[in-house]
């Protein structure tokens, strides 16, 4: 009985460590990105992703680093993954519309999106 308790404790401890490591990798990636070290940040976020962290934030940030590396199609697919995980995120939507504008400069997606946002706000006020 004691042995089982001990094993369970070790398992819980290791699981806690791993979650903490994933979080550390993600945060460290963010720090690197803020300093402009996008490739290193990409490496950190990819490791966090491999370790099982599948959040919208990681996919969104990976997409930005891919944009920095001019890998626009890969970036778009990462943004889509992020949006699937967090469909209501306005930040991800704005990032996507800016990327689309970059791919096709003639699109008015960003301004259209702003109009939509204004309309939403307007509707809210009327209520």
């Amino acid at each position: 009985m004691k042995q089982i308790t001990l094993i369970l404790l070790v398992v819980f401890f290791l699981a806690g460590c791993s979650a903490n490591r994933v979080n550390t990798e993600f945060k460290f990636g963010n720090k690197l990105a803020k300093r402009g070290l996008w490739k290193e940040a990409y490496y950190r976020w990819s490791r966090a992703l491999k370790d099982g962290e599948n959040s919208a934030a990681i996919h969104n940030n990976i997409a930005i680093s891919l944009e920095f590396q001019n890998k626009l199609k890969e970036a778009e697919s990462e943004y889509q993954k992020a949006l699937k995980l967090s469909p209501g995120s306005e930040y991800i939507k704005r990032n996507i519309s800016r990327l689309k504008k970059r791919i096709n400069p003639d699109t008015e997606s960003d301004s259209q999106e702003r109009k939509d946002l204004k309309m939403k706000k307007g509707k809210g006020r009327r209520k």
Partner: peptide
């Protein structure tokens, strides 16, 4: 330069 939203 273009702005993007980096999620925390």
């Amino acid at each position: 330069l273009e702005t993007r939203y980096l999620m925390k």
